[in-house]
């Protein structure tokens, strides 16, 4: 099973029960506005939030748990990790605080504990412990209108397409998270454009780690190539100088 969450924006009433349940489950304390907040309600203590969209809609923002996560490929020490079940989790013991994951995430999800002298990266972990006990994440469990539901990714995709086919006038004909950046475990269907979650960008389907992979793949060849070229140049020039010297010393050079 590949764990996934489907959020139906049309059903969300913005009650923020999911936010509170998330806080309770992950033992997060109350939050107050801080200078470094990004303004979307996500903070190091709020791992999910409700963003107000157009037409009085409420859109839940959380980690997408991408199938090809940019943060996992970016982390130089492998502190970000995609588990077998689908959750992207964070190993605080490995982290060294470079914040490259925050820069790499196309959705701008990871948050930092800016106020702490020993800060860690914080983000939704899809309640992977609860999932491994056979429970569902706290947010989907509590949702009073079943606007956000938990299940197998393929089943949820089918459900999403079924709902869209049922009410084509209501929904945009698109499942957000199906293909974007090679797809994600958190899916959305909506009656409003959800590019508001990505600052208005539409995210193409090619996986982000591949963009770096091209450059990283060239590393050994570049290194060996540079060494070979420079070594050869050095040898050729050295030999020329030697021959020239021999020549000027009066000995006949070998042709």
């Amino acid at each position: 099973m590949r764990a996934a969450i489907l959020t139906d924006v049309t059903k969300c009433i913005g009650c923020e029960e999911c936010v509170m349940a998330c806080k309770k489950t992950n033992h997060q304390t109350a939050d107050v506005p801080r200078r470094w907040d990004a303004g979307d309600g996500l903070t190091s203590r709020n791992w999910t939030s409700i963003v107000s969209g157009p037409a009085q809609s409420h859109v839940r923002k959380q980690c997408r748990h991408c199938l090809e996560p940019a943060c996992v490929s970016a982390c130089p020490v492998g502190a970000m990790h995609k588990t077998g079940i689908g959750a992207v989790v964070y190993d605080a013991a490995k982290c060294m605080g470079c914040r490259y994951c925050m820069m790499a995430c196309p959705y701008g999800i990871p948050r930092y504990e800016w106020d702490a002298a020993v800060p860690y990266v914080r983000k939704c972990i899809l309640c992977y412990e609860r999932i491994s006990y056979g429970q569902q994440p706290a947010c989907t469990e509590i949702c009073p209108t079943k606007a956000t539901i938990f299940g197998d990714r393929d089943a949820l995709l089918a459900e999403a397409h079924r709902r869209i086919a049922e009410k084509p006038d209501l929904y945009w004909n698109k499942v957000w998270g199906e293909t974007e950046a090679h797809g994600s475990s958190v899916l959305y269907i909506s009656n409003v454009d959800l590019s508001l979650l990505t600052d208005g960008h539409a995210i193409p389907s090619d996986p982000l780690p591949e963009k770096t992979a091209v450059a990283m793949g060239a590393v050994p060849y570049t290194f060996c190539g540079v060494l070979a070229v420079m070594g050869t140049v050095n040898w050729v020039i050295g030999r020329r100088i030697k021959l020239q010297k021999e020549n000027s010393d009066g000995q006949s050079p070998k042709t």
Binding site: A74, C75, P76, A79, K94, C95, G97, M216
Partner: peptide
């Protein structure tokens, strides 16, 4: 100064992630 946990800077030598550009930089 920039790293949040600078005392963990040696992790780069132990925990490898060769897919990361920052790993190469380090």
């Amino acid at each position: 100064f920039d790293l949040g946990l600078p005392w963990n800077i040696w992790h780069m030598m132990v925990y490898w992630n060769p897919h990361s550009a920052l790993f190469e930089v380090g």
